[in-house]
């Protein structure tokens, strides 16, 4: 990465001009200054723009192109099939399972993580000795690599493994399942693992939101005789709205693309039957490993369109909510 140069070089050069302008005619120095400014703007932004366009935007364009071909990835794509790959995807029951699983994960993450995170964040927002330490521990799962988490839970959840032994010792042996092998159970097991991994992220965001709530407001409520619970319910929670919506947005986009934890935790055989597949694992299984590149790229485009439309709808929904809030706020 030698790109430090654009910053370093002009520093020396920048020292020169202030001595010059005095002598130079005003108009030409102003033109030179304007030109210099544009050189700087272009020189400083170009590397970022090039890398960003090349590795984020261009590939997605190629995906649309490749998705129109039947192509095994060798040589240039030649067998144009139009929208056949898209039709095939929506006719494949495994892909429809993957879609359903993504829907379960999107909704499940919001419904389960939201209340848990809110409760924990309110708890850890109270003042008590050792609070910092507790916060640190609660964030641990979020910082661990997805792969680590996946392998960890895979070992814990194997048949006759630790989770089973623990349940039996608690007299809950009846609850024991083939957590990762039962086709009807596996998606819920994975949802549990995802919840364990990502609820810390929601807690971090909510604690940030809580730290923005002015203490004067809660103190005023306390002086007016409100209990802790009433204060949270009527003062703190309403102020958390924007933070909660941002978390919902990030959680939704993450759930639609989820790959690592699913890939590592679930057994390939179960995944290939659709029970634990998501759009992303389906895409990688078919496109990369089965070398159906045209088909895989079609799935990529579907995944992209679904995520992007969801993002735009959410933004629109967000915006409307906030505008309404502003209006009612003013009316009061």
């Amino acid at each position: 990465m030698t790109s430090t140069n654009p910053t370093l070089n002009p520093v020396g050069g920048a020292d020169a001009p202030p001595a010059g302008p005095r002598a130079a005619r005003r108009s030409s120095s102003r033109a030179a200054e304007a030109r210099r400014k544009w050189y700087e703007i272009i020189g400083l932004t170009t590397p970022a723009i090039v890398v960003y366009v090349m590795f984020v935007l261009v590939p997605m364009g190629f995906a649309v192109y490749y998705s129109l071909f039947r192509w095994r990835g060798v040589g240039p794509p030649t067998e144009f099939v139009g929208l056949d790959n898209y039709v095939l995807a929506f006719q494949d029951p495994i892909f429809l399972d993957a879609l359903r699983n993504n829907a379960i994960i999107v909704v499940g993450s919001l419904v389960i993580q939201g209340p848990i995170a809110l409760g924990v964040a309110l708890l850890l927002n109270r003042r008590f000795r050792g609070r910092t330490g507790f916060r640190l521990l609660v964030f641990v799962p979020y910082v661990l690599a997805e792969v680590t988490v996946g392998i960890m839970w895979k070992l814990l959840l194997t048949g006759g493994g630790t989770v089973d032994a623990l349940l039996r010792s608690l007299g809950l042996g009846g609850l024991v399942q083939a957590w990762l092998a039962d086709l009807d159970v596996v998606i819920w097991t994975l949802l549990f693992v995802l919840t364990w991994k990502y609820v810390g992220f929601a807690i971090i965001l909510l604690l940030a939101g809580l730290s923005n709530v002015p203490p004067e407001l809660t103190e005023a409520a306390a002086i007016d005789g409100a209990t802790w619970w009433q204060t949270q319910r009527h003062v703190t929670l309403p102020l958390l709205g924007p933070t909660i919506r941002i978390w919902m947005f990030l959680s939704m986009i993450g759930s639609l693309q989820v790959f690592d934890v699913i890939w590592v935790t679930s057994v390939p055989a179960v995944r290939s039957l659709g029970a634990s597949a998501t759009m992303a694992t389906y895409m990688v299984d078919n496109g990369f490993f089965a070398r159906l590149w045209g088909y895989g790229n079609a799935v990529a485009v579907i995944l992209f369109v679904i995520s992007f439309v969801a993002a735009l709808l959410f933004q629109r929904f967000l915006l409307r909510r906030d505008i309404e809030g502003a209006i009612t706020g003013r009316a009061n």
Binding site: V56, F62, A300
Partner: peptide, 17 residues
């Protein structure tokens, strides 16, 4: 806009590139 972009979706064409 890149924040809205599902990075995972572009992985196959990225590999090809």
């Amino acid at each position: 806009l890149g924040l809205l972009f599902p990075a995972g979706a572009a992985i196959l064409p990225l590999y090809l590139m």
